[in-house]
Design a protein around this nucleic acid. Structure first.
Lengths: 155, 155
DNA sequence: GTAGCTGCAAAGTTTTTGCAGAAGC
DNA sequence: GCTTCTGCAAAAACTTTGCAGCTAC
């Protein structure tokens, strides 16, 4: 993520460029695929500046959300998670996620194959899709292998 | 939703069939497409039996989730929402949702067009998809019309 | 210098837990 | 009758807010 771009976005809105805001940005940038919770961001931030407050992380995340620099994702586990917006891909669309129901690991996908679905929704409902989020649930290759081995042992 | 089926599921697990559990089930059944929050279920339940407790709703919802009778959905607004599982459709798959970013209204979709995507994910990641959830964000027809009118007034 | 920001602590929400009495089986 | 469930209240978990001092510009 381009730090300068975010600085410009902040200044455009009359907001200030602070070390805390850049830190949160860099943490999310460094942990691209991990969908961090606020608590996790906080812990990572404390490693760099132990005096930072949890409320600052909540407020920073709010600001970055409003600038569309980051996105909120929820995996139905009660935690709000944040990740950098995939603006660099040009689509401005969210990632998709494949969530393993066994180990809980989350994989990010870049594919964007929903055009047919979106077209159909527009025609039937008059609903104009501007963004979408897809979650696939299932077994990752590691867990699938484990499950297969377990089956073979039994037989 | 077949009440008898749920009663059987409860008994199979050594759980008890109580009026509260049936009430929550019936409320979700009667409000099929509304993705109710716990608080909303609670308010509806109180209309019938004012002495019911909020904790009971939370616990009942947990039980019904474990029986896969209902499903949890989150629209990133901080509320957990619940809806009956679409078992009757035979697919066992979740609904998809179209969420209007203007008015917040949620439409349920039954279309199931992700086969191509799922196949591709299996081939590239070895991830075996068993279920999926799609959220489309955009403008519903009403809000789109409003937006268009506003544009016309300006010009 | 003036805005807006931060850290702390206190308050708000949403959800969970403990326990005595009630209900299902 | 024994187990599980419910309702209440208290607690826990997550998030927001108020305020005095600090920082960006």
């Amino acid at each position: 993520m381009n730090e300068e771009k975010v600085k410009d976005l902040l200044r455009e809105k009359g907001l200030k460029v602070t070390s805390q805001r850049l830190m949160v940005l860099n943490i999310l940038s460094a942990h691209g695929d991990e969908h961090l919770t606020v608590e996790e961001i906080y812990d990572l931030a404390k490693e760099e500046s132990p005096e930072i407050g949890l409320a600052t992380i909540y407020r920073t995340v709010q600001v970055l959300l409003e600038l569309h620099v980051i996105e909120k994702v929820t995996f139905d586990d009660g935690f709000a998670r944040y990740e950098l917006n995939g603006e660099e891909t040009g689509s401005g669309h969210r990632h998709h996620h494949a969530i393993c129901t066994q180990c809980g690991k989350v994989y990010s996908l870049e594919t964007d194959l929903l055009d047919t679905l979106e077209k159909q929704v527009f025609e039937s409902l008059g609903f104009e899709v501007t963004d979408h989020e897809v979650k696939l649930y299932g077994l990752c290759s590691a867990c699938r292998r484990k499950a297969q081995n377990a089956m073979e042992v039994k037989t």
